[in-house]
């Protein structure tokens, strides 16, 4: 298997990371060598193996749905790059 530039462009779009041509070529090289290394897993037959989805093998606990943090609006907005009163500001979405 080989990851070509078209695939890199596709992944970069899914990842929301813009990549120029030069970077894309380097990334393709890097990813190909990493995937070559990952392909080793295909040596193993795993049809009958149950995937490990949780290391602790316990079911997650339910908690009651109650508000514990009150009036933290200011704290939440504090680190935003741009805000207006109680809102995050983003580039215009609707024309």
């Amino acid at each position: 298997m080989s990851i070509d530039l078209k695939t890199i462009k596709h992944i970069s779009k899914l990842s929301r990371i813009s990549v120029d041509e030069k970077r894309a070529e380097k990334l393709a090289d890097d990813l190909n060598s990493i995937f070559e290394f990952i392909e080793k897993l295909n040596e193993l037959k795993t049809d009958d193996v149950k995937p490990l989805t949780s290391i602790a093998e316990t079911t997650l606990k339910f908690r009651s749905d109650e508000i514990k943090s009150k009036n933290i609006r200011e704290q939440i907005i504090k680190n935003s790059p741009e805000d207006n009163e109680d809102y995050f500001v983003v580039p215009k979405v609707i024309e």
Binding site: R16, S18, I76, N79, S80, P81, F88, P91, K92, V93
Partner: peptide, 17 residues
């Protein structure tokens, strides 16, 4: 949007990327 570095973008997606 919520915290950290933000680059200037022509629109929302461009800003994310």
């Amino acid at each position: 949007v919520k915290y950290g570095y933000r680059a200037k973008g022509e629109n929302l997606i461009d800003m994310y990327e």
